[in-house]
Design a binder for these strands. Structure first.
Lengths: 153, 153
DNA sequence: TTGATATCATTTGCATACGAATGAGTTTCC
DNA sequence: GGAAACTCATTCGTATGCAAATGATATCAA
């Protein structure tokens, strides 16, 4: 069979290196690429806000006023990262900060009216982003994929 | 039916906000968390190299000497990003740079002997990283997930 | 009550990640 | 042959992302 012959030729070709470790097949590498693709789709739909900034606004809409740290926990950002995100949202007038009356360590974050308007306006676009990200999959595949991805996250 | 009554109560409860957009359910958000988890697992196994740095070394092992840009394409990094990664690998003596004789625009990158030793030594650890990342899934689920993830990436 | 411990926030330092602009070299094509 | 278009690399600016160190405040427990 010439097919097998060709296979042998390929395997034995050139250098004696065994490339049985293939970067393109490792979850971490594919995960990074899938994430990149999603961020790119996000940017195409929502140009003036990053995914983390959007996440902060969306979560504040869900839970209302919270401490900066607590918000970070809810959107999976460490303290240093969430600070930068909130600083930039505050500079744009989308969130406002205040000190917790009782626990003086806490910095409370809340949506401004502009922030609330923004997130309500953006949510329909976010639905499109999710759809476009999942567009390569069928409805059944989407259900399966989402379930398995959630297990990994 | 008390089930329906409870449902109505939930829907009508408190504030008139409809939170039918749930951040935690959006692919982008879960993708970001899954990626974070993988990076964390990677760091626990390979502390002195980042996933992008590892990817660069692993790909150089596969393809041998290439231009910096071409390498970037192979590991999904834009020109600006790959430059930083290669700079740091060069500073540590894991790769070496040279000018392309014919096309003077190109900067050729290759593994040094130290770089080759390093990547050969790290590949077994990388296999463990892949395994641990996928540990929450069964063998069948891993096959399904990997296939679907690849479609998205 | 006070001393150890824990939590919240900030800062610094380093490493991706990417858009945009720039400069140098190469290819295309008329 | 030469101008236009393209490619490779670098630089700048901005935005995550995280470890580690620090300071302020709170909580717990002896």
């Amino acid at each position: 069979m010439s097919g097998e012959d060709n296979l042998l030729k390929l395997v034995e070709a050139e250098e004696p290196e065994d490339h049985d470790y293939l970067l393109q097949e490792q979850v971490g590498f594919i995960l990074r690429k899938a994430h990149q693709r999603h961020v790119s789709i996000f940017a195409a739909h929502i140009g003036d806000l990053t995914p983390p900034q959007f996440a902060a606004l969306a979560k504040l809409r869900d839970v209302g006023e919270t401490s900066q740290n607590q918000l970070g926990t809810l959107i999976a950002m460490d303290a240093a990262t969430v600070k930068g995100v909130i600083d930039r949202l505050k500079a744009r007038g989308l969130v406002e900060l205040s000190k917790h009356e009782v626990d003086k360590r806490r910095l409370l974050v809340n949506l401004t009216p502009e922030g609330r308007d923004a997130i309500e306006r953006l949510i329909p676009l976010a639905r499109e982003i999710t759809q476009e990200t999942l567009a390569p999959l069928s409805a059944k595949e989407i259900a399966t994929f989402t379930k398995l991805l959630a297990k990994l996250a």
